[in-house]
């Protein structure tokens, strides 16, 4: 008689029809195949749907059939690590990049990587953006020692190629505009350093100059303002910091070191 753990391992393997194991020797009565099929269909259906909800632009790019096939392979290779399916799955873009038909179209995997950041930004906790009054009232020594904490939805990432332009084009609800924008995509365009965040219930994408991106990263990593400024061209610092504050990159600022 199998232990529960052994049984559960076997059941998981049997969920893949390709395994050929229908558990007929341990299932009571007739019809193991049909009975197991309910579970197989449900697991595949639920996880496919979850992937489709986190990567809708990617699904539009490759079409429903291809997405379903890629998802089915991914689900077997890399099932969720968490019971919260909003988190499924960070590894999907890299997996997609290895699929036949995608290796020759790297921009598809790049869009999927951007989508992961977008989806996680959408699901991040709510938090008000940092307000000015408290900061202005601090003494200069304190201002220099401030450490900013990023808004929970902020993601700083590097894209390859025109991933942002493609993402925006694919998700454009107006059909004519979408077709026009897709046709205008220049696949040779360079990648960007980007801030992704959720503002007012929707997503804002801010392409940043590399030095501004490095500045934002340093601040989000918890460096003091004085430390972060060391890497910034002095003439740009105020404008960049002002833009970060106005766009809601930060939720809080404190004088304490992060744990």
């Amino acid at each position: 008689m199998p232990t529960l753990h052994e049984f559960q391992r076997r059941f998981r393997a049997a969920l893949t029809a390709a395994s050929g194991d229908d558990l007929a020797d341990i299932v009571q009565g007739e019809g193991a195949v049909a009975r197991l099929a309910v579970y197989r269909n449900n697991v595949l259906g639920t996880l496919s749907a979850a992937l489709g909800l986190n990567f809708p632009a990617t699904a539009c790019l490759v079409g429903a059939d291809f997405f379903a096939a890629a998802a089915a392979r991914f689900i077997v290779a890399s099932p969720p690590r968490s019971a919260d399916l909003h988190e499924y799955d960070e590894a999907f873009p890299a997996f997609l990049a290895t699929q036949p038909g995608i290796t020759a179209r790297p921009y598809i995997a790049a869009v999927a990587a951007l989508e992961w950041a977008v989806a996680q930004a959408l699901h991040a906790p709510l938090a008000p953006a940092l307000g000015a009054a408290r900061l202005a009232a601090l003494a200069p020594e304190a201002q220099a020692a401030l450490r900013f904490r990023a808004h929970p939805s902020l993601r700083l990432m590097t894209t390859s190629g025109p991933a942002r332009a493609i993402w925006e084009a694919v998700l454009q609800p107006d059909e004519a505009l979408r077709a026009r924008n897709l046709a205008a995509i220049d696949l040779a365009a360079p990648g960007e350093t980007l801030a992704v965040l959720r503002v007012g219930g929707t997503i804002a994408l801010h392409p940043l100059a590399p030095a501004a991106f490095a500045f934002a990263q340093a601040l989000a990593d918890g460096e003091t303002l004085a430390e972060a400024l060391a890497r910034v061209p002095p003439q740009s610092a105020a404008a960049w910091l002002g833009a970060f504050l106005a766009q809601g990159f930060f939720a809080t600022a404190s004088l304490r070191r992060p744990i």
Partner: peptide, 22 residues
């Protein structure tokens, strides 16, 4: 750093007037 922050707060307030509110 203090002067950058002061200038940045002014820029942020001009960009979105409500920013000044806590």
């Amino acid at each position: 750093a203090a002067s950058v922050l002061t200038a940045a707060l002014g820029i942020a307030a001009a960009a979105s007037p409500g920013f000044a509110q806590q």
